[in-house]
Design a protein around this nucleic acid. Sequence first.
DNA 1: AATTAGCACTCTCGGGTGTTAAGTGCTAAT
DNA 2: ATTAGCACTTAACACCCGAGAGTGCTAATT
Lengths: 357, 357
Amino acid sequence: MHKEAYELSERKKLILRTIIDAYIAGGEPVGSKFLTTNKRITLSSATIRNEMAELEEMGYLTQPHTSAGRIPSEKGYRFYVDSLMRNYRLSSDELRALNNLVQNKISELDSVLEYAGRLVSSLTNYTSLTVKPRTDAVKILRYKILKLNSDGFLLIMITATQTVKTKYIHMTSATDDDGLIRLERALNELMCDIDMNTVTMPLMMQLQAQLVGYDSQVSPVMRCIYEAANESDSGDLKLDGVNRLLQYPEFNNIDTLSSMLEVLERKEDILDVVSKSDKRLINIYIGNEIELAAMRHTSLVFKTISSGSHVVGAIGVIGPCRMDYSKVITTVEYLTLGIAGMISDEEEDSDIYDGYE
Amino acid sequence: MHKEAYELSERKKLILRTIIDAYIAGGEPVGSKFLTTNKRITLSSATIRNEMAELEEMGYLTQPHTSAGRIPSEKGYRFYVDSLMRNYRLSSDELRALNNLVQNKISELDSVLEYAGRLVSSLTNYTSLTVKPRTDAVKILRYKILKLNSDGFLLIMITATQTVKTKYIHMTSATDDDGLIRLERALNELMCDIDMNTVTMPLMMQLQAQLVGYDSQVSPVMRCIYEAANESDSGDLKLDGVNRLLQYPEFNNIDTLSSMLEVLERKEDILDVVSKSDKRLINIYIGNEIELAAMRHTSLVFKTISSGSHVVGAIGVIGPCRMDYSKVITTVEYLTLGIAGMISDEEEDSDIYDGYE
DNA sequence: AATTAGCACTCTCGGGTGTTAAGTGCTAAT
DNA sequence: ATTAGCACTTAACACCCGAGAGTGCTAATT
């Protein structure tokens, strides 16, 4: 699969994997002597040292200083994630917690994501992130007008993405029922399924023409429609368990921590990364693999949740490069699949999206 | 106003104020020698030392260790805020930034709060917080039913707080228009302006009775109404500029920082404090004045934004006890007033709340 | 030819020590 | 009542030293 796979002997792979496992678990540089305690490695420390020196030369390991053990480099982690890592088996407790959330069928996606974030953070002990995707400008398929009282009416818009938006519109001058019916008809004739940025003067004039006598209503209505169509939910990123990062020695340094918090606060950047990501597979960014300079010492793992063809959210984890990738990946994948299933179940009940905001 | 005001000679007050001003500005314990450089104080360091010793005995100052200068105690800060502090004058740059936000009439309250938070944080250099209040279970004043297609209809609910909620309801069995009209009428007769927790069996049976032939529709509708009424927007707290706290030496200690982040993550606690606060004046909590143990070393300043009689949000600042109270108070008050004004302007345009989510 | 034992070397970490600077409290003089 | 002067306390910093961990290299062993 990878060129590197042929570059390394089985023995080197074993040593590399053992080192990375140990470093992920303990967080301290791993020395040759420690490796001799591993049952699967029956070599003297000297031989291991030679192998480690070669692995370092090849770029899989680095040394914090000459008299310390080795720690994985980014290339090392990458190879580990791609080829070496063992599958994590969720414990029964963990499974129970995860299933609990999925089966508990909380109807609103927002709260599902909130609980999911909290759960992922507590299970993995890293910071979790949940994303609600941005919804771009949207086309409106159909209009309904509902007179509420003598002062105004409710404009109901059904969008192309099968959601409903409503706006209350205050009537500047009394408009009789006939006017509202004509307005509704005119909107449905002229303003359906078009890109709001292409509304031109001729169209506007046509609209005005159809509504002679009620044209004072047109401009507030148009404003509302325009707003509703462009209400781009710019995407929402929520984090949970930020303070968990503090327990890892790599963030005991104030500078590292500071740059980390800065990243977490630049939510647009993270949203950008998520929006540009693979929508079907799990995404793993290790250290500098992400373009953000301040994320040099952190890794990001996430997966989007899809319902049918469209993305409804994403769940992931942010933590140190020394992350328990195996556990994180398993947890995130299990949960995203579960939530996707839960949503598609729900959609069987109702074709249109039930409950929106 | 305060008993303490009589306890202190003018000279003590001058010394105390000068110490607190200096400590807020510099963050380092203030010694007697430094105070002699102040033009308004024409005393020798020895005299000042005596006064400082007395102020310490009275509880306004403390000493980190015997050979350090003095720092204000919580009592000291409290007295400073209540009686000693000078008014801060916003600079023209600051005024411009603040006015810019207020005059820029962004229509959605959400984005206004978001920008306001960012602005407050950047102007004061502390962490800002913005709160959208929780909306409790709500009574529904009126129902409208709108048939969208043969599969289902839209249930529109106008609430007592003048907002509109809609739910799409899937029809299990085909229901003709007459059924929907009768459903709407029955809901408006029986289910208006009542507390959802008091819906009793007799009421349910009455409802069923009015809808003979269509009763299969009743239970999903009831479920939706119940959900809509109890969709308690549990309040939303957003923070901005968390990383700014790192620049203050009081948070250079990992433990302090950790407990701080923990507090920031327990948003419910902060929401609680805000919801129980004074709705008209600015609220200032210094250190332990707040019940949360982990906030021992932080202060919280905030003010709610009201439109007419109801609270639409709150803006504030979290920072070290050594906070530039004067600047923070002025900034927060100016901005909350500005936003309140901006909202009430808007409400002149439309009686009902225009644009909700 | 591959592996291993042995050893000199390097580097960090923690503890101990001495010095410096800041600031105090007290006493006696003004 | 105020102040000068002085002895005292303490944190902070720099410095040194030894212990411990781990390495790379060489020579011996399998």
